[in-house]
Amino acid sequence: MSNHESQTPRLILENEIALNISKLTLWNPQCKKAHDLVKRLMKSYQIKPAGMLIHGDPGTGKTHFAKKLKGMAFENITQDVLDDHKKRPVIIVTAPKQSTIPKMVNILLEELGDPNPSVGSLTEKEYRLYHALKNLCVQLIIVDEIHDFLPSTSKGTKSSALAWLKGLMDNTLIPILLLGTDKALLIQDIYKELASRIRYTTAFVKFSVEDDQMSKFLFCELVQSLVEQFGSKANILKSFNFIQTDSNGCCTFSNESLLLRLYVATDGIPRGIRDFFLELNIEIHTEDNFKANLPNLAQIYSMLDPISINEKIDFNPFSVDMKVIYKYLKMNVKNAEGKNEEN
C-alpha cells in the first residue's frame, strides 16, 4: 500500500472531525433565550413589521446561532417540498461594509438565487427582490455584521440605507433578525424609526470562569463537547474533561490549572475555543503518539491566528507559571468591577 493510500482514512477522519468542530453549537441559556425571542418575533410574520437585534463581541456565537436557526427551519420542511417549491423559510446574508442600498439589494438577490443580481436599475432589482421573497416564502431574514451597514456619520444622522431596511420590513412584513457587535446598538440613536420596530434585543457574551459558576460550567461543557467530536481519539484529550460527576449526580471541576490556562488563552470566546481545537485536531492527525501536554499545547497556541487568541495578554498561557495565570485573572476581575462601577 502506498503512503498516499495509507494516509487517506486519516485525512478523511481529520476532515470529518474538523467539520463537526466548526459546526458545533451548544444550545446554552443565551441561545435558548435568543431562540425563544426569535419564535416570538416570527409570530409577527405578515402581521406587522418587526425586528430583533443580537449584539455581542466577535466570536461569541451569533453567526453559529443564526446558522443553527436556518438548519432548524429546513428540518421542518420535507425534501420533496423543498425540491418542488424551492421554499426558503430563512435566509442569511452578511451586510455590506458600505452603507448603500444597491449593495444590500445585490446581496439579498444573490442569496435568493437571482442569476444576475447586479443587473438592472435599482427599481428593477427591488421588484425582483420583493417577487423572490414572496415566491420563495421567506419568513425570516437574518442580516449578519449589521454594524458594518451603519453609516459612518455623526450621531443622530439619518441613513437612507437604514431607511430602506425599515421599508423592507414595512412592505414585506417579514421579520428581520440583525446580528452585530455592540456598535449595532447605535441604530437606536441613528434612526429611531427603525429602532422602534426592533421589538427584542439580547446580548451574546463570552464565558467567564472567575466568579460565575454557571458560566464556568458552560465553558467546560463546550470544551467537553468539542473533545467528544474526536471519537476514538478523545482519550488523548482526557485531561480536557473538566467536569466530574459523582454517584449522587453532583458535578465538580477537575484539572483546574489546565482549565484556567485554556480560558486565559481564548478569553472565554467560543470562536477561540473552537479554533484551538481545530488546530489540536491537525496535530493529533499529523503527529503519531501526540500527547496533550503543556509544551505541545503551547506550540499549538503559538500557531493560532491573532483573532482566535486573547489579545489582552503578551504571554503564552501554556508555558508560564500558574502564578502568572492567577495574577491575570485577579486583574481581570478588578478591571471588570471597575467597569461595572463606571456604569
Rank of each mutant, 00 (worst) to 15 (best):
D189M: 14
Y328T: 03
H147V: 08
D314T: 13
E16W: 12
K312D: 11
E342I: 14
N171K: 14
M42R: 09
I142W: 04
K312L: 11
P29E: 04
L173D: 06
Y127R: 15
N335M: 08
Q139Y: 05
L150I: 11
E210K: 11
P96I: 09
E228I: 04
L278N: 14
R40S: 08
I190E: 10
I309A: 04
P96Q: 01
E311M: 15
A50K: 08
A184H: 05
E287H: 10
N248H: 08
Q79T: 15
L258I: 15
Q7Y: 04
L140Q: 03
I313N: 07
L304I: 00
G180I: 09
I92K: 09
F277V: 06
E5F: 01
L122D: 11
I91K: 05
F315G: 01
D182E: 15
L194S: 01
S22A: 13
S152M: 15
L194D: 00
K216P: 03
Q229F: 09
N281K: 00
A50I: 07
D80G: 08
P58F: 07
D83A: 12
K86C: 14
L24F: 00
D305N: 12
C251K: 07
V81L: 09
F204I: 14
P117H: 10
I313F: 04
E145H: 03
A184E: 07
K33M: 06
L259G: 00
D267E: 10
S154C: 13
R40E: 11
N241F: 05
F217G: 03
F65R: 02
P151W: 04
L19Q: 13
I141K: 13
V105F: 03
C31E: 09
N3I: 10
D57S: 12
N106G: 12
D211E: 14
E283C: 10
L259M: 11
G338A: 05
I313A: 02
L26K: 09
A50S: 12
L133T: 01
I91F: 03
S302M: 01
R261P: 04
R271M: 13
K327T: 14
N106W: 09
P89W: 03
S152P: 07
